[in-house]
């Protein structure tokens, strides 16, 4: 009985002291040997849409509610690409921001009407608790993102 109590206590203590580390493999991890620069995807997206690629960069933003998307910085200044994962399949922790990562996924093209862009940006602003001005949206948009399948965060 004493041994059992000790084991339960040790488990509880280990839970409380568990590391808040975010490094590790997420989803299916990464399998491709070669990294595709984010700039190459943005420069010639039609060459990549529907294809599986591996990108790497800094995690510069994370979905703070579901952990269902991240932004990865590109190889050119100010450039970043969104990686969307299926809700619950991969959950990126908020603390992953600022870490370097390799992410594997399928390049997707998203064509949104002006109204869809407004709805989408309103949703993002609500997620962040920010205000959104619909007049900042001037028309339909085409964006490119990765449907994330796996990642390794360092």
């Amino acid at each position: 009985m004493r041994v059992l109590c000790l084991a339960v206590m040790l488990f509880a203590v280990s839970l409380v002291n568990a590391s808040a580390g975010v490094e590790g493999s997420y989803g299916h991890g990464v399998t491709l040997p070669e990294v595709t620069p984010v700039s190459a995807i943005f420069d010639a997206p039609q060459n990549y849409v529907g294809k599986r690629v591996l990108i790497e960069g800094m995690i510069v933003d994370v979905c703070t509610s579901r952990g269902c998307w991240i932004f990865i910085s590109g190889d050119r200044p100010y450039e970043k690409i969104r990686v969307k994962v299926t809700d619950g399949e991969i959950v990126f922790p908020v603390a992953a921001q600022g870490h370097l990562a390799q992410v594997e996924g399928i390049v997707q093209e998203l064509r949104r009407s002006k109204q869809d862009v407004i709805n989408w940006k309103r949703h993002l602003a609500e997620e962040r608790g920010e205000e959104f001005d619909p007049s900042t949206v001037t028309g339909p948009e085409v964006t490119y993102r990765l449907r994330g399948l796996g990642a390794v965060i360092r």
């Binding site: 800094m58 510069v60 200044p77 100010y78 970043k80 603390a95 921001q97 600022g98 870490h99």
Partner: peptide
């Protein structure tokens, strides 16, 4: 300080343990 990202020409994002 974990990392720094120039998010726009006149904007800087600093990633610190527990703070962005």
């Amino acid at each position: 300080l974990k990392n720094v990202f120039p998010s726009a020409p006149e904007e800087l994002t600093l990633f610190v343990e527990g703070n962005t």
